[in-house]
Amino acid sequence: MVETIINISMGLIILAGLLGSVRFFIGPSIYDRVIALDVLTIISISLIALLSHVAGRALFLDIAIVYGLLSFIAVLAISRYLERGL
């Protein structure tokens, strides 16, 4: 019962990732791609946290924390580059 619900929600999160990648590939402007990247990283954080439940190890949560902080810095760096160059 519990495992079935978790499998369904994992499928839904992967579906969300696919939808985000659609915008990432067709996005007409660079801004759309950066927005899609931002959303994709947040979806992947949830996916990593869910994977740590599937694997039964809390180690993956540390990876999720570091990934979240790095993706935040990545978005800041890209927007700064778009605004005035590096």
């Binding site: 019962m1 519990v2 619900i5 978790i6 369904i8 929600s9 994992m10 839904l12 999160i13 579906l15 969300a16 990732g17 939808l19 985000g20 659609v22 915008r23 927005i35 899609a36 959303v39 947040i42 979806i43 949830s46 869910l50």
Partner: peptide, 23 residues
């Protein structure tokens, strides 16, 4: 456990809606 799984399901539905909104 069951309420945790249902909360997870609700969260993933919101994630799908957010991605759908981006598209």
């Amino acid at each position: 456990h069951i309420s945790g799984a249902i909360t997870l399901l609700a969260g993933s539905i919101f994630l799908v809606l957010g991605a759908l909104g981006v598209v």
